[in-house]
Nucleic acid binder design. Structure first.
Length: 591
RNA sequence: GGGGUCGUAGUUAAGCUGGUUAUAACGCCGGCCUGUCACGCCGGAGGCCGUGGGUUCGAGUCCCAUCGGCCCCGCCA
C-alpha cells in the first residue's frame, strides 16, 4: 500500500470533481471526513482543501477495497483510484458542489491512520478556543477556517500585483533592529556577541522605509510583520502584518488615490465588490464632533448633535453648572422609540453613569411634550429648540449627556454604537470607508505629563501651523490620514518631515533632549541631511482588513497560528523558560 | 495594573434552595445493515465536576485563593 504514492499521482482535488469528469479514471488523496458503512456498501466523504466528494466502496466492483474500507476512521489519510460516475437518479446531493457525481473505488490505500480527533470538524458545533488553538493544525482543516486563510492569500497576492504594476519595489527591512522611544513597548532580543545589548523587533519599518526614500527607491512597499508588546484585544495581536507603503515626490492626495485604487482592486478581485471612489473624507475634528470617535462607523447615521448653546442661560441648574464650567450638552436621536423598553432606557442611563457624566437623561417625544424626568425643569421654548435642533418628531427618543467635551464624545460615541447594534441599524454586508484627515500633530499625555505624537514623531506638520509649535502645540495640525472601514482603523499614514531642521523642532516640542535624540535617532537625522526627497506613506493592518472582509469575529481566525490574550501560543506552549546555559551565553539573569 | 465572564465525559452543554448511584446529545468501541450523505437499528465503555484550601453531618453547587480561555478599561507612535 505504501507503493501507491510512488506509482500513482493525484489527478484531481476531491472538491473539484464535477459532471464534466464523468467516466474518467481519477486518483484522489485526502482525509476521511465521514464514513457511512451500510455493511454491503460503504460511503466515505473524502476531503481536501477544495472540498468533499463521496467515494463508494462496493464489493461487486472491488471486494478487497470494500474490506479495507471497514478500517477507515475519521481523519485517516486515504488514496483512492476509481471511476467518476454520475450518481443514480434521485441520489444527487445538492448541498455538495460535487453532489452530482461519486467515485466508484477500484483501489484503496490507507496512507495514514489517525487518532480520533479531539473535536468534531463539523461547522455546527461551537468549540472553545483553548481546544481549537491547542490542536490548531486540526482546527485549520475546517473549511470555514481555511476560507479565511485562502482569502488572506488572495488579498496579499492581489496587493502585490497592484503595487508591482504601479512601479513599487518590495524591499525587506530588518527584524533585528534598534529600540525606539515613543510609541508601543518593544519586544527585545538579547545580543550574544554584544553582551548586555539588545535588539528590538520593529513596531513598524518606519525609519527604514524613509531611508529607502532617501536612497532613491521612490516607491516602496512590503507585506511585513510588525511587533508590539502591548495587551491584546479581539482585533490586536502582538505580531501582526502590515501592508507598508512609502512614496517620494507626492502629496496627500497622491497617496490617498493610490490607496483607494488598491482597495478598489482588492475588493473587486477578492470579493467581487465594487467600491465607489473616492472615499468620503472627514476631518479629525468633524469625526469627533459627529461620531465621538476618530474611527467612526459610517454605516449608519445617528450623529451626535450639540445643544450647549440652547442651554447656556437655562434655569435648569444642573445643566447650567456643567456649561458654566466649560462643559457641553450633546445628544443623539433614536427614531421609533417603541423599539426600546423602559428597561432599555434605564440601561442607557446606567451606561452613561459608568462614565460619571454629570448629566444623563432621555426623553420620549409625544404630542404633549416629552416623557422625561427633566421635562418639568425646562421651558417650553427650550424643549421646542431641542426638538428643532434634533429633528425630533413624535415617537422619537433623544438621549442627552452633559459633562466635559472629552467625556461626552466618549459616552455618546460608544452609546451610538451600542444602540445601533441593539436596534439592528448596521448592514453587515456594507463596506463603509472614510478617510480621517487633519489629525492634531500632538496629544497631551496625562501619564507622561508632556505632549506625545498622535501618529509618530516623523509626521510632517501643516507648514502654516509651525509658529504654533512653541505657543500652542496642541493646535498644530499634522499632514496625516487614517483609513477607517466600518468603524475600524485599517490604515494610517502621513507626509513625513524631510528637513532635518523641522525634525529637530519636533523632537524639541516632544521634550526629547538633544543627547537622547542623538542616541536614538542620530543616524536618521544625519541621513535627512544628505538629500531627502519630500515623501510620505501609509501602512495597512492586513489582519484587520481580512477580518472585516471575511466577517470573522476575531483577528485570531484570520491568523494561522495566533496568540491567546495572554500572548501565549497554546500549540507550542511559547513562551517558555530557557536553560541556564542559554541565559549565561547571553549574560542574562532572571530577577 | 483593573473590571467582567466562563471552566462538569473526547466535544458541546444541563445539573434548581447544598442531600441517594452526576444527566443529555454528538463522538468513541462492538454487532447488524447494498444507496447513504448529520445514514439507520441494537448493545457498551467513558468523570480528579480546572487546581488548592475552607465552611458543613454532607460541596459540581457556598466562601477564599490560584491557573487557564474569552470580552472590556488602561495601554496600543
Amino acid at each position: 500500500m505504501s507503493d501507491f504514492i510512488s506509482i500513482k499521482k493525484r489527478s484531481h482535488y476531491c472538491g473539484a470533481l464535477r459532471a464534466s469528469e464523468v467516466d474518467q479514471n481519477v486518483v484522489l488523496m485526502g482525509w476521511a471526513h465521514r464514513r457511512r458503512d451500510h455493511g454491503g456498501i460503504v460511503f466515505v466523504d473524502l476531503r481536501d482543501r477544495e472540498g468533499l466528494v463521496q467515494v463508494v466502496f462496493n464489493p461487486d466492483i472491488c471486494p478487497e477495497a470494500h474490506l479495507e474500507a471497514q478500517k477507515i476512521r475519521s481523519e485517516f489519510v486515504l488514496a483512492v483510484e476509481g471511476k467518476v460516475r454520475r450518481r443514480p437518479a434521485g441520489m444527487e446531493n445538492p448541498t455538495l458542489k460535487t453532489g452530482e457525481v461519486e467515485v466508484m473505488v477500484s483501489e484503496l490505500a490507507i496512507l495514514s491512520e489517525a487518532k480520533t480527533p479531539p473535536f468534531s470538524l463539523d461547522a455546527d458545533t461551537d468549540l472553545s478556543e483553548n481546544i481549537r488553538l491547542k490542536y490548531r493544525y486540526i482546527d485549520l482543516r475546517r473549511p470555514e477556517i481555511q476560507k479565511y486563510l485562502l482569502l488572506r492569500n488572495r488579498v496579499a497576492a492581489e496587493a502585490r500585483r497592484y503595487f508591482q504594476d504601479a512601479g513599487f519595489i518590495e524591499v525587506e527591512t530588518p527584524f533585528l533592529t534598534k529600540s525606539t522611544p515613543e510609541g508601543a513597548r518593544d519586544y527585545l532580543v538579547p545580543s550574544r556577541i554584544n553582551k548586555g545589548m539588545f535588539y528590538a523587533l520593529p513596531q513598524s519599518p518606519q525609519l527604514f522605509k524613509q531611508l529607502l526614500m532617501i536612497s532613491g527607491f521612490d516607491r516602496y512597499y512590503q507585506i511585513v510583520k510588525c511587533f508590539r508588546d502591548e495587551d491584546l484585544r479581539a482585533d490586536r495581536q502582538p505580531e501582526f502584518t502590515q501592508i507598508d507603503v512609502e512614496m517620494s515626490f507626492i502629496s496627500v492626495d497622491d497617496i490617498i488615490s493610490v490607496m483607494e485604487g488598491l482597495m478598489a482592486e482588492v475588493f473587486k478581485n477578492c470579493l467581487g465588490r465594487d467600491l465607489s471612489l473616492p472615499f468620503p473624507r472627514l476631518s479629525y475634528f468633524d469625526a469627533l464632533d459627529h461620531y465621538g470617535k476618530d474611527n467612526p462607523d459610517t454605516r449608519f447615521s445617528m450623529e451626535i448633535r450639540d445643544l450647549t448653546d440652547i442651554f447656556r442661560d437655562t434655569g435648569f441648574e444642573v445643566i447650567r453648572e456643567v456649561i458654566d464650567n466649560g462643559g457641553v450638552l450633546k445628544a443623539i436621536l433614536v427614531k421609533d422609540n417603541k423599539r426600546l423598553s423602559r428597561k432599555d432606557l434605564d440601561g442607557i442611563r446606567d451606561y452613561i453613569a459608568t462614565y460619571d457624566a454629570k448629566v444623563s437623561a432621555w426623553a420620549r417625544i409625544n404630542p404633549e411634550g416629552w416623557t422625561s424626568t427633566i421635562f418639568k425643569y425646562l421651558k417650553a421654548e427650550e424643549v421646542q429648540k431641542v426638538n428643532d435642533a434634533m429633528d425630533a418628531h413624535e415617537g422619537d427618543l433623544i438621549v442627552f449627556a452633559a459633562d466635559t467635551l472629552k467625556t461626552i464624545r466618549e459616552v455618546l460615541g460608544n452609546l451610538r454604537l451600542q444602540l445601533a447594534k441593539k436596534l439592528d441599524l448596521i448592514d453587515p454586508n456594507q463596506f463603509a470607508f472614510a478617510w480621517i484627515t487633519e489629525f492634531p500633530l500632538f496629544e497631551y499625555s496625562d501619564t507622561e505629563k508632556r505632549y506625545v505624537s498622535t501618529h509618530h514623531p516623523f509626521t510632517s506638520p501643516v507648514m502654516e501651523d509651525l509658529p504654533l509649535l512653541r505657543s500652542d502645540p496642541g493646535r498644530v495640525r499634522a499632514r496625516a490620514y487614517d483609513l477607517v472601514l466600518n468603524g475600524s482603523e485599517i490604515g494610517g499614514g502621513s507626509i513625513r518631515i524631510h528637513q532635518q531642521k523641522v525634525q529637530s523642532l519636533i523632537f524639541q516640542a516632544l521634550g526629547l533632549g538633544d543627547e537622547e535624540v542623538r542616541l536614538k535617532f542620530g543616524y536618521f537625522l544625519d541621513a535627512l541631511e544628505y538629500g531627502t526627497p519630500p515623501h510620505g506613506g501609509i501602512a495597512f493592518g492586513l489582519d484587520r482588513m481580512i477580518m472585516i472582509m471575511s466577517g470573522a469575529e476575531s483577528i485570531r481566525d484570520v491568523i494561522a497560528f495566533p496568540k491567546t490574550q495572554k500572548a501565549t501560543c497554546l500549540l507550542t506552549d511559547a513562551p517558555t523558560k530557557v536553560s541556564i546555559e542559554q541565559l549565561m551565553e547571553l549574560s542574562l539573569k532572571i530577577a
